[in-house]
Simulated assay, not measured.
Amino acid sequence: MAQDGALDRLLPRWDHRERHEIAARAPREQVLRAVDETRWKDLPLFHALLLIGSLGTRRDKAHEPFLGSMTGGGFTELHRDERQLVVGAVVATGEPKGPARLAEPVAASFTAFDRPGHYKVAFDFRVGEGRLTTETRVLSTDEATRRRFARYWTLIRLPSGLIRREWLHGIRRRAESSPGTRS
C-alpha cells in the first residue's frame, strides 16, 4: 500500500517503526468496524499474559473492546476515514509518567508536540486491496529520551510485534465472520 496516509502526516519522522500486514477478505468497512469491535478474548495470548502478569489482581476484560481499553488508557484517535484509523499518544518519561493531555484539535497538537522528556507513539490500521496493515511509529522529543526509549524498545519490540500480529488475526477473524463477507 502506498505510504500516503494520515500516519505519514501525523508522524512523518520516527526513531522506531514496526509494520505488519495480513490478507483480509472482507469489505473495507467491515474490516475497520472489526478493529473497533475486536475484544480481549479475540487476543487469547495477550489476554492470558496480562492476567498471568497481574497475578490475578487485574479484572478480566475478555468481552471489552481492545482498542476501547487503549483509548480509555491514554491513547487518542487522531484520524479516521474509510480506509485508515490512526491512534496515538504523547508519553512523559519523567514524573509524572504516562500520557500527556493533548490540546484541541488533538491531531494538530500531537503533530506539533515537541516538549523534551516525552515520546510520541502512533499506530494505524489501514485497509486496501484485500490487505490489512498496522504500523507503529515512535519519535522521542530529545536525545536523552531517545536513548532511554531505545533500551526499552529492545525489550518490547518482539512481544509488541507478537501482539500486533495477534491483533491483526483477531480483526480478520471478526471481519470475515461478519454477515456479508465475500469469500
Results as ranks from 00 to 15, higher is better:
residue 180 G to S: 12
residue 165 R to Y: 04
residue 122 A to W: 05
residue 24 A to K: 02
residue 142 D to H: 01
residue 144 A to N: 02
residue 22 I to Q: 10
residue 79 H to P: 13
residue 90 V to D: 08
residue 138 V to W: 04
residue 117 G to I: 05
residue 44 P to I: 14
residue 105 P to R: 15
residue 98 G to H: 08
residue 9 R to F: 06
residue 20 H to Y: 12
residue 131 R to A: 05
residue 116 P to I: 08
residue 78 L to N: 05
residue 24 A to E: 05
residue 97 K to G: 10
residue 87 V to A: 12
residue 50 L to C: 05
residue 35 V to E: 05
residue 102 L to N: 10
residue 151 R to A: 12
residue 102 L to V: 13
residue 147 R to P: 00
residue 1 M to H: 02
residue 28 R to P: 06
residue 174 R to N: 06
residue 7 L to Q: 06
residue 91 V to N: 04
residue 181 T to Y: 13
residue 179 P to H: 12
residue 56 G to L: 12
residue 10 L to E: 04
residue 160 S to E: 07
residue 143 E to K: 09
residue 4 D to H: 10
residue 31 V to M: 03
residue 86 V to G: 08
residue 179 P to Y: 07
residue 36 D to E: 14
residue 126 R to Q: 14
residue 103 A to V: 03
residue 133 T to R: 13
residue 164 R to H: 09
residue 145 T to A: 11
residue 31 V to S: 02
residue 22 I to R: 14
residue 20 H to V: 04
residue 128 G to P: 06
residue 177 S to M: 11
residue 18 E to R: 07
residue 65 P to Q: 02
residue 86 V to T: 12
residue 72 G to H: 12
residue 163 I to F: 06
residue 56 G to W: 09
residue 71 T to I: 15
residue 154 T to S: 09
residue 173 R to T: 12
residue 122 A to I: 11
residue 104 E to M: 12
residue 175 A to L: 10
residue 103 A to D: 15
residue 147 R to K: 15
residue 89 A to T: 01
residue 95 E to L: 02
residue 45 L to E: 00
residue 150 A to R: 10
residue 17 R to E: 10
residue 167 W to V: 07
residue 119 Y to E: 03
residue 73 G to D: 03
residue 143 E to V: 09
residue 154 T to P: 00
residue 31 V to H: 05
residue 34 A to V: 09
residue 126 R to I: 09
residue 15 D to P: 04
residue 112 A to M: 01
residue 77 E to R: 15
residue 74 G to T: 05
residue 47 H to P: 01
residue 152 Y to S: 00
residue 53 G to L: 11
residue 23 A to V: 11
residue 128 G to V: 08
residue 84 Q to C: 10
residue 20 H to K: 10
residue 111 T to N: 02
residue 135 E to S: 13
residue 140 S to H: 01
residue 55 L to D: 02
residue 169 H to K: 14
residue 72 G to Y: 04
residue 134 T to Y: 08
residue 114 D to A: 15
residue 67 L to Q: 06
residue 113 F to G: 01
residue 142 D to R: 09
residue 182 R to A: 15
residue 120 K to W: 00
residue 1 M to P: 01
residue 65 P to E: 05
residue 49 L to C: 01
residue 81 D to H: 09
residue 21 E to H: 06
residue 68 G to I: 07
residue 173 R to E: 07
residue 158 L to V: 10
residue 57 T to R: 14
residue 168 L to W: 08
residue 119 Y to G: 02
residue 145 T to I: 05
residue 148 R to Y: 00
residue 122 A to P: 08
residue 76 T to E: 15
residue 59 R to M: 14
residue 32 L to Q: 07
residue 108 A to M: 04
residue 182 R to I: 14
residue 161 G to K: 06
residue 78 L to W: 05
residue 78 L to E: 03
residue 166 E to L: 13
